[in-house]
Every structure is written in structure tokens, then in C-alpha cells.
Simulated assay, not measured.
Amino acid sequence: MPVLRIEIGAPAEVLQPDAVRAAVAEFFSMLIFVFAGKGSSMAFAKLTHGPPDSPAGVIAAALAHAFALFVAISVSANISGGHINPAVTFALLISSYISFFRSILYWTAQLLGATVACLLLRVATGGLETMMPYSLAPRVSCGNALIFEIVMTFGLVYTVFATAVDPKKGHIGVIAPIAIGFIVGANILAGGAFEGASMNPAVAFGPAAVSWRWKYHWVYWVGPFIGAGAAAVVYEFLFIDEMDHEQLPVADF
């Protein structure tokens, strides 16, 4: 049987040097990812005077996010595991690969990294107003957006488990950052024109906090957490044996 439980850990864990280094790595990787991803949408709007959700804008955003996430995971994989997403951290938490207290540390660093990236973009662009928070397109309901976020995040986290977490991954683990970046880019092409295709609560939180616009923001938390949890449960039950389950070494992700 697979292991599905939450390891609480100890409060003192958040003060351990390796945990602090991991949180700092998550902060900087999230900053890199959000700055490049959101910055690409802002630059596209400035250069073309068109909306970021136009066909060309969605393609540009998909490529920028895919490339940026590949780099963000690669540069932090040997320090924090390269989560770069509160939903990924949640999936690893409920699968007992990471403790609850370390998860809190990661979530804090991820949210701060996304917020600082958005603040830097606002300052660097002179307060450019195209950095809008994630929102729903016309005739797209909260239910529609929730389904998009659940399914897309399921695909993302399933890819994470298959290429980075599974003890039987073998040499496929080398391409984990590429595979994860690709699935995020593909999902943006699928859902970007409908509801922004966040798949990452921190990526949605940063623009919302800087612009202080929270309408429908709950969708970008509930959907990714449901999708991530479902992917963790499915992969653990179907493909990982309890005897193979082990605490995820930082250097392996």
C-alpha cells in the first residue's frame, strides 16, 4: 500500500540551516519564474498594444513560462527540490515526502518570491498597468475555471511525480525540469485564453497582492490544490509501492 499521511515534523525544523537555505532557494527561483513569465506578458502588451490573452500573447506567455520554469527548477533542484509551486509542495506534503513545518516555510518563501517579482516589475516598468491578476474571460464561469485549474494542475503534478518523485524514475529524472516546463507551457496554450492558466497559487497571488484585486482569486487556490492532491493520490496508489516510498532527497528533485 502507498504512504498517504502528513508528516508534521517539529517547529524547530524551520530554523535548521538546510531548511532556511531551501526556503531562500524557493524564494529566488519563484522570483525568477514570475518575473520572466509575467514580464513577458507585459512586454508583449507594450510592444503590440494588444491584450495578453490574444493568440500571439498566449503563445508568448506559454513559451516564456515553460523556459523560465525549466530554469527555476534546475537552479534550485539540488537545494530545495525545486518545487516552485505551493500546489506541488502540498502534493508532496500529503504523500509524506516533506513535513508540514517545512511546507509552511516553502509556502511563505514562494508567496514572497512571487510578490517581490511583481513589485519589481511594477517599479521597473514605471507602474505599467498591464500586469493584471488572473481573471476569467467573458462567458467563463467559476465552475469552468475551476475545472481548468484542477485538470491542468493534475497533469502538472502527475508529471512531477512521474519524472522527479517516483523512486523507479531512473535516468528519466534528468529531464524532469524540461518535462515540467513543457507541460506548463502546453497547459497555458490550452487554458490561457479562458482563465489565465495559473496552476500555481503563488503565481496568481503575486499580481493580486500588488494590484489588490482579489476577484475570483479563490479559484486559483482551490483548483490547483484539488488537482495536485488528486494527482498525488492517484500516482501513489497506482504506481508507488510502500517499500519503495522514501523521504525525497533534495538532490533527487
Results as ranks from 00 to 15, higher is better:
M1A: 09
L4Y: 08
L4N: 03
L4C: 08
I8G: 00
E13M: 14
Q16P: 01
P17F: 07
A23V: 07
S29E: 02
L31F: 15
S40I: 02
F44C: 07
K46V: 12
K46W: 10
K46T: 13
H49A: 12
P51W: 08
S54T: 15
S54P: 02
G57Q: 03
V58N: 00
F67I: 14
L69G: 01
A77G: 13
I79N: 06
I79E: 04
G81V: 09
P86R: 05
L92Q: 07
Y97A: 09
S99M: 03
R102E: 05
R102S: 00
L105R: 01
Y106I: 05
A109I: 09
Q110N: 08
Q110G: 01
G113S: 11
T115W: 08
A117N: 05
C118P: 02
L119Y: 11
L120M: 13
A124C: 11
A124K: 07
T125G: 05
L128W: 14
E129K: 14
M131L: 15
M132W: 04
P133V: 12
A137M: 11
A137W: 04
R139Q: 13
V140E: 08
V140G: 05
C142E: 13
E149K: 10
E149I: 08
V151T: 10
F154C: 11
F154G: 05
V157W: 02
T159D: 02
A164T: 09
V165K: 04
P167T: 03
K169C: 09
I172Y: 13
I172W: 10
G173T: 04
I175R: 04
P177Y: 11
F182T: 14
G185E: 03
A186M: 11
L189S: 08
L189E: 08
G191H: 01
G191M: 01
G196T: 07
A204W: 03
A204M: 11
A208V: 05
W212E: 12
Y220F: 15
W221N: 07
G223C: 07
G223I: 04
I226T: 05
A228M: 06
A230T: 14
E236C: 11
M243N: 15
M243L: 13
H245M: 03
E246D: 15
Q247C: 05
V250I: 15
